[in-house]
């Protein structure tokens, strides 16, 4: 079969990979500095969307006010989990495995709270009419999708600049590579971890809101989105921000090709098959950084 290049497919692939990039980055922000596989992050992603729904649709505030407020609230939840659960556990000397199960329990709690508060049905924050997208070289892209792409790319660049040029960003990198050594150099790792939780949660909730603008929301939406982010992070190589770009692109391309040639319902399975193949043959991802989790 000849690989026919289709502009629409290319746009879709780019759109999806940019979204996955945002999820992967928001997760990695937390993961590299704390070494916690925080599944609770999925609830923060969902909460971003639901807080926007609550403020704009239920309390009837304008959407331009609702979105920043929702980001603040969801970030507060993310920081709250760090202060209330992870930090005390860390002081008790918990291993990453214990942290992961605690975050899983916390995710179950938060997700069910969302279900009780807002119900299990699909909610929408779209007040505008759905219209045909803009034509672009014979393919279509909606205004919302253009906004999502612009916002995500801006956030990615801002994050990179923050990590490389600001004092706190450098401290986050220091704690990521060696927490003990960073402490010796007078860096307060608790404060740094709190910052990375704050930034990661803010990014995650923004990503959740962006997705809900495009495809509405359900209480469990965050879980799959987060797992795509995690897969993109692992195949891109943990700790490398440019690896994330490659991971997200590869994941989105593979998913779209499978949807194009087989069926779109296999997209979930394809993501995990890629993950498992990578863990088998290239466990360190694109970037090839040393990682102790995959050995033998």
């Amino acid at each position: 079969m000849i690989f026919d290049i289709n502009i629409q497919a290319l746009i879709n692939i780019n759109f999806c990979s940019i979204l996955k990039l945002l999820f992967a980055m928001s997760f990695m922000m937390i993961y590299v500095s704390t070494k916690i596989f925080s599944i609770t992050h999925a609830a923060v992603i969902t909460l971003g969307a639901y807080f926007t729904y609550m403020i704009s649709m239920q309390a009837h505030f304008p959407i331009w006010l609702a979105i920043p407020l929702a980001i603040v609230l969801a970030t507060a939840v993310g920081i709250g989990t760090e202060l209330g659960i992870y930090k005390p556990l860390r002081k008790l000397g918990a291993t990453p495995l214990i942290m992961l199960i605690a975050s899983l329990g916390l995710y179950v709690v938060l997700q069910n709270c969302i279900s009780i508060l807002w119900g299990d049905d699909t909610k929408s924050i779209r007040t505008w009419e759905v219209k045909v997208g803009n034509e672009f070289f014979g393919a279509y892209i909606t205004d919302i999708q253009i906004i999502i792409i612009a916002v995500s790319l801006t956030l990615f660049v801002l994050c990179l600049l923050f990590l490389h040029y600001s004092k706190m960003g450098k401290q986050i990198q220091a704690v990521s590579s060696n927490e003990e050594l960073a402490n010796i150099f007078g860096i307060n790792s608790d404060k740094v971890i709190l910052w990375s939780f704050g930034i990661g949660s803010a990014l995650g909730s923004i990503a959740g809101i962006l997705v809900s603008l495009d495809t509405d929301m359900t209480p469990t939406m965050g879980f799959n989105l987060l797992l795509y982010g995690i897969v993109a992070m692992i195949i891109g190589g943990v700790g490398s921000y440019w690896g994330l770009v490659g991971g997200a692109l590869l994941l989105a391309t593979a998913q779209h090709l499978s949807a194009y040639y087989i069926d779109s319902k296999w997209m979930d399975a394809v993501a995990y098959i890629i993950l498992i193949l990578f863990l088998l043959w290239k466990p360190l991802g694109f970037s090839g950084r040393r990682l102790k989790k995959v050995e033998l």
């Binding site: 596989f37 990453p96 992961l100 995690i230 863990l279 466990p283 989790k293």
Partner: peptide
Amino acid sequence: RTVEDYFIIC
């Protein structure tokens, strides 16, 4: 071939 949190994700 993986351990701990990677095994769970796997």
